[in-house]
Nucleic acid binder design. Structure first.
Lengths: 341, 341
DNA sequence: AATTTTTACGCAATCGTTTCCGAAATTCGT
DNA sequence: ACGAATTTCGGAAACGATTGCGTAAAAATT
C-alpha cells in the first residue's frame, strides 16, 4: 500500500491538508490555479486517498454487500453480473457473501454487516430462512436493503422479483394444452416466497382446467441424492406423471439424469419444463423448455433501487415492488405438437 | 449503522477505551473479570467495532479482491466459490470485480486498488491484456497478489493453474486415437497463458502422431457472432475438420449451435471435445466430452496461498507455482468406439 | 522489610481524511 | 473611499479504534 498521504501532498505544495482535500473534491472555495497544482502532483505521485480514513470520516463505505444463497446457479450469477455493472457505474464496490442456503450463515453475515462496513445490502434469502428477525434488525438500523427474487414480503423494503405465479401458470397451462393431465411440480422445500408463488401458479392452472385432483407436489431439499431418490420414486409409483415441472434449475438436471437412468423418454413418456437460466438448455437432449427469468435485469433494477435509497432519493412508487416478467421458451422437452413415434 | 462505539462502552463500564479494546481482543493484560464485564455489555448492546476505524489504525482491511474476466462462465464461478469458502474461514471479506475481458478496466481496477482498500488480490487476467505494468506496479507496493488460471508467468507472484498443456495433449490424443486426423483447435485470441499452453499441448499431440501438417488453429474473439461465422466457414471450406477441440467452454456451445444449423452430426461427421466445467455437459445432445478443470480446488488453493502471503507466512516451495490436474471425461461427442450408422 | 516483578489499567498519540470555523486578502457596491 | 461581500485558504477538531508508554497496586522475591 502506497504510504503517500494527503498531508505529504500538502507539505510538498506548502498547502494545508484541508486545501488539498478540497481541491481533490473540486470544491468551489479553491482557486483553479491551486486545484491544478494539486492535481498535477497527485497525478504525478499517483496518489489515492485512503478509503478507510475517508469512510471513517464520512461514514460512507462506497461498498455494498450482495448476499446470495448459492453461486453455482446461473440465475444468481446473472443477477450478480447486473449488480456489478450498476455498482461499477456508481463508483461502488461489491462484497459478495454466499450463504449456501444456510440460515445461520445468513444470520451471521447480517449481524456482521451491522458494523457500517457497507452502505447497503442486496439479498436473496436462504431456503432455510423462516425467521426474519436478523433482517428487520438490520433494516431498523436505517441501512438500505433491497430484496431480489427470494423476498420477504412482509418487510418494509423494496423487492425486485419476476412474475413467478404467472410464469408458472403459463408453463403449467402449456403442458396441459399439449395433453398432459398428471403434472408433477418439483419445488424446493421451506417456505420461500418464490416457492409459494410458483406453486400457486401451478395450482391455479390445474384448477382452471379442472385438474386439481391430479396435483402432484414434490418438495425436494438441497441434498442431491435425496432429490434423485424422490424423482425416481415419482416414476416408479403406479400413477406416473406425464409431465414434470421443476421450479429449480438444478432439479431439471437431476430429472434428466434420472430419466436417462430409468430409460424414460422425454418428451414421449414424460414432458418437461423448468425454471432455468442455463444458456445451454437449448443443447440438451432433448432441448429443455424453460422459463427464463430476467436475471440480469433483476440485478440491474435492484441495484438501481439500492443506490437510490443510499442517495436518499425518493423511490418512484413503482419501485417499491418491481416485477419483471419472465418468458417461456418452448423447446423439444414439451413440444407443441405431440411427437408420434 | 449502529452508533454505539467503543468509547460509549467504556464510559458505561467506567473503563478506558483502551481497556475495552484490549478486552475484546483478549489481551493478557486485562483481568478475566474485566473481560467478562466488557463482553457482557458488548453482547447485550450487540456492539461491533467500526471496521473502518480499525482498518485505518491497523492498516489492514480484512478484505481481498477477486478480479475475473467474466462471470458467466462456470469455471470462474466455481473458483469464486472456492475463494469465498476460504475467505470466510479466515474471517475475510471478498470484493468482486469483473473486467469483462477489458484491459482498460483491469488497469483501472488495479490502479484503484492501490489505495489500501484490500490486503491482497487474486486475479485471472483479461484476454486483451498484453502489458503487465499495472500488475507489476501493484506488486511493487508490497501487496500480495496471486494469479489463477490466466497467469503472468514472468512475474514474481504465485500462480495456480491446471495442467493445460497436458490436458490439451490428452484430449487431442484421444481424438486422434478415435480416428480423427483433421482436428481443429478453437482458442481465444490474444496471448493468454492458457491459450498458448493449450495450443502447445494440441500441437505436441499432432506432432507425436505425425499430423502437424493438418493443424487447424482458429482464433476467435469474444464477439459471439464473429465466432459463429468463423466456425461456419470452418465447415464450409473444402478440407473440413473431422473433429473440433474448443479451448473455451463458450465456443463449444456456439459450435453445437452451428452444427445444428448446418445439420452436421456430432459425432458422426465431426467429433467434439472442449474445456468445460458445465455440469450439464452430460445432458447435451450428444453429451459433450470435456476437460474438466479443478476450478473449486484452484479457488481454494490460490486463496490459501494468498492468506499465507497476507499473514507473512513462508510459502512452501511447492506453492510458488501450483498445478492442479484437470481430468478428461469422454462422452458421446467423441466416443471411443466409432459409431457406425 | 525493602526491593523487584507482575498484574491491570489509563493517558494520549496515532492512523489519514474531512469539515466546521475563522480569517486574511481581494473584489464589489454605492 | 469605505464598509460589505466574496474568494481562498489554514487551524484544528472530529471519525472510532488501537497501542506504546507510564504507573499504581498487588504479588513475589530476597
Amino acid at each position: 500500500m502506497s504510504n503517500i498521504t494527503l498531508k505529504k501532498i500538502a507539505e510538498e505544495l506548502k498547502l494545508s491538508p484541508s486545501t488539498v482535500s478540497r481541491s481533490l473534491r473540486d470544491s468551489h472555495e479553491i482557486s483553479q490555479e491551486t486545484k491544478d497544482r494539486v492535481r498535477a502532483l497527485v497525478a504525478k505521485l499517483d496518489f489515492q486517498p485512503n478509503p478507510h480514513a475517508s469512510s471513517l470520516r464520512k461514514n460512507k463505505s462506497k461498498t455494498i454487500a450482495v448476499i446470495i444463497p448459492e453461486i453455482e446457479n446461473n440465475f444468481f450469477v446473472q443477477v450478480l453480473n447486473g449488480i456489478e455493472e450498476i455498482a461499477q457505474k456508481n463508483g461502488y464496490h461489491v462484497l459478495i457473501y454466499i450463504t449456501h442456503e444456510n440460515y445461520q450463515r445468513e444470520v451471521d453475515i447480517l449481524h456482521m454487516l451491522r458494523s457500517g462496513r457497507v452502505d447497503g445490502i442486496m439479498i436473496s434469502v436462504a431456503s432455510s430462512t423462516t425467521n426474519f428477525e436478523h433482517l428487520t434488525a438490520y433494516v431498523e438500523l436505517g441501512v438500505p436493503l433491497v430484496f431480489f427474487d427470494r423476498v420477504c414480503e412482509i418487510m418494509d423494503a423494496p423487492c425486485v422479483t419476476t412474475d413467478d405465479a404467472q410464469a408458472a401458470f403459463e408453463a403449467t397451462e402449456h403442458l396441459i394444452k399439449t395433453g398432459c393431465s398428471k403434472i408433477a411440480f418439483l419445488s424446493l422445500d421451506g417456505n420461500l416466497s418464490i416457492s409459494s408463488r410458483r406453486r400457486s401458479g401451478y395450482l391455479e392452472a390445474l384448477k382452471q382446467y379442472g385438474l386439481l385432483n391430479n396435483k402432484i407436489i414434490v418438495e425436494c431439499c438441497l441434498d442431491d441424492e435425496a432429490t434423485r431418490q424422490k424423482i425416481r420414486s415419482l416414476f416408479l409409483r403406479e400413477n406416473k406423471p406425464d409431465a414434470i415441472f421443476t421450479a429449480i434449475e438444478k432439479f431439471s438436471i437431476t430429472t434428466y439424469e434420472v430419466c436417462k437412468e430409468l430409460q424414460i423418454k422425454i418428451p414421449e413418456q414424460v414432458k418437461m419444463i423448468s425454471f432455468s437460466n442455463l444458456t445451454a438448455a437449448s443443447l440438451f437432449n432433448p432441448s429443455l423448455s424453460a422459463i427464463i427469468q430476467p436475471a440480469y435485469g433483476i440485478g440491474r433494477e435492484s441495484a438501481d433501487i439500492l443506490f437510490r435509497l443510499i442517495d436518499r432519493k425518493k423511490l418512484l412508487p413503482t419501485q417499491k415492488k418491481v416485477i419483471i416478467p419472465s418468458h417461456l421458451v418452448i423447446r423439444e422437452s414439451s413440444p407443441v405438437q405431440q411427437i408420434v413415434l
